[in-house]
Design a protein around this nucleic acid. Structure first.
Lengths: 335, 335
DNA sequence: TAGCTACCCACAAACGTTTGTGGGTAGCTG
DNA sequence: CAGCTACCCACAAACGTTTGTGGGTAGCTA
């Protein structure tokens, strides 16, 4: 910047203001500065700017993991929206571990991020590590997995609706004893999916049966184990809706190993629309989560919060509509 | 820091040196400083430190994408090793696009990263956007997809060996006309995999046949299209080795749709050991890439380079050994 | 012409660290 | 006791921006 100033015979103030399009700089001067900056290949030091301003153009993201389809896609949406707004994204994984999540938040604060976007780890049940973020006045947005019973800004899928659609679809295909593979109920998404399942049953006048609901961490192994248990019931099920695709995959693999026909004997539906749902045989019906939109929405929310830094806190929530992808694992039950 | 200094009646110099464990500060003083820092909940401003030092504790990573298994796992390895060394990781995706790759590098430089780890985009054929990194004296490490014909530091898999093993395995199972689905040959990994394939054939005294080698971008669709072409050959193939799992998946899907038995009629092997290789039926034989080790090795290399900032440049390359995972798609060809 | 507005610009102080330089003290050696 | 080493510490200048304050000039109005 000093070079630019010397070259043009103006002060660094003018350079800085010209570059940031300040109103008190003449259009002609701005042009000259910009042109010379290009010519000299001037690279702004964002660090210095961040230091002076007390805030960087970095956006911190904490997710449980980045395998599978969901989180990478959300991050993709975040990156796109962020870069449009001139922000860079720094991604951390909590590996489903509160302790790591806590450390990640620290790291991000130390990097002076302008905002923090979080999807909670599985075992996060208290939220004090986010207090610092708020107390520093840094916008905080949760997405997908959000804190229970807290006043927060968040972007979520209408999980209830997704589960409702999936379960209703199974019922419409003729299923009458539909089981549910449920996730940990302290996590909002799994709680809502379970409720959607129950409400779909109710809409069909079917009484819920706790024996048909299996609670687990929703891994492939959990899904297989649950399916094994369900098969042992005196009154066998004819449909399974899982709150996650890994679990329904496990169930499917077990059924196939037992020679049980899908969907003729048992119809299956999952949640997340993972890539592999289109690979299995039969292909798996699943609820799509609008991953990229979720990322974009989270960034939009962040930008709004950042635009009004000292506005009184008002909880905001964006709710996205899921979409059911129907595939062969649940189709043509009734010939 | 000023608070700490005032409280303890020493200068900020002492505080700074005590916190960074400088040798000219007494152990007693260090203890006092550390204790008070804890008590006052002192949060260092890494930005300021980075500004002063001209370097942050951030490690920049550029990858083509983060879907699938490979890159997330590598990143996982990077994060682990980096956090052990006190670095945070900032991940950017180039989406297989040189232009974005260029911009990502700019962004990272602006963030004053301490090092840059890169896996090239598919269409990156010139490398001038990395000159700035070097000229600033910032360690630059390539992994997996590295520049051709350049003096660089890199971590790669022994792709040749992996391909050799996979192809040899197919031949050992009784295959005699093994086709190869090859990727773009300007990319090191695909070139080496093709060469491994050829060398395995040679070892079995089989003459290579260019008609059996298909070049494409290795998508699922590409794999299916290639398989369709191969089936139309007068002299049909009895084995296919693909340089990527997506392609071999496409091939598999096409074969199944034609009612061709795997592995009895045609045996299949892929590369990457993607998650879905254990889901397909039959499960897919594939070469595992030691993803996490690759990430760790890249960080190790970075740390070595960072430790000797002004050492004369000496090209370094770490080569990891692949591992063949044999599954049903290639087994028991000879009863 | 005095007074006002609208622009345009420079000075200099921040932002929170790190670090080269140099000064001081204690203990030891010869 | 002089001289040396080994510690210990403070001063102050950086690092590259942003921004509040205030000064200057031109053009217009009354």
């Amino acid at each position: 910047m000093a070079d630019l100033a010397r070259e043009l015979g103006v002060s660094m103030t003018t350079i800085s203001r010209a570059l940031s399009d300040h109103h008190s700089i003449g259009a002609a001067t701005k042009q000259r500065v910009l042109k010379l900056a290009k010519k000299l290949n001037y690279q702004p030091n964002h660090l210095a700017a961040a230091l002076r301003r007390g805030q960087s153009r970095l956006l911190g993201v904490v997710v449980p993991y980045i395998e599978g389809k969901f989180f990478p896609s959300v991050i993709q949406g975040i990156e796109q929206a962020a870069s449009k707004a001139g922000f860079s994204v720094i991604v951390c994984q909590s590996h489903e571990n509160v302790e790591l999540e806590r450390r990640n938040v620290e790291t991000l604060l130390n990097a002076q991020v302008a905002g923090v976007l979080v999807s909670l780890a599985r075992n996060t049940q208290e939220f004090h590590h986010f207090d610092k973020v708020r107390s520093r006045g840094i916008p905080l947005v949760f997405f997908d997995r959000i804190p229970a019973g807290e006043q927060v800004n968040s972007v979520v899928l209408n999980d209830h609706e997704g589960a409702l659609q999936a379960t209703r679809h199974l019922l419409e295909q003729g299923c009458r004893r539909v089981a549910h593979l449920a996730g940990p109920q302290h996590i909002n998404i799994y709680r809502h999916r379970r409720q959607g399942y129950l409400d779909a049953l109710a809409a069909f006048g079917i009484a819920p049966d706790e024996a048909l609901i299996d609670y687990s961490d929703m891994t492939t192994e959990d899904g297989a184990a649950a399916m094994r248990r369900l098969l042992a019931l005196p009154n066998p099920v004819d449909g399974v809706f899982a709150a996650g695709d890994s679990a329904i995959l496990g169930a499917m693999q077990l059924l196939k190993s037992k020679g049980i026909s899908i969907p003729r004997d048992i119809a299956l539906a999952g949640f997340s629309n993972e890539g592999f749902t289109a690979i299995t045989e039969p292909r798996l019906t699943s609820v799509d989560q609008r991953c990229e939109e979720m990322g974009e929405a989270a960034v939009r929310l962040f930008l709004e919060l950042a635009a009004a830094p000292h506005a009184p806190f008002a909880q905001r929530q964006v709710v996205l509509q899921p979409e059911l992808f129907v595939r062969e694992s649940s189709l043509q039950r009734q010939p």
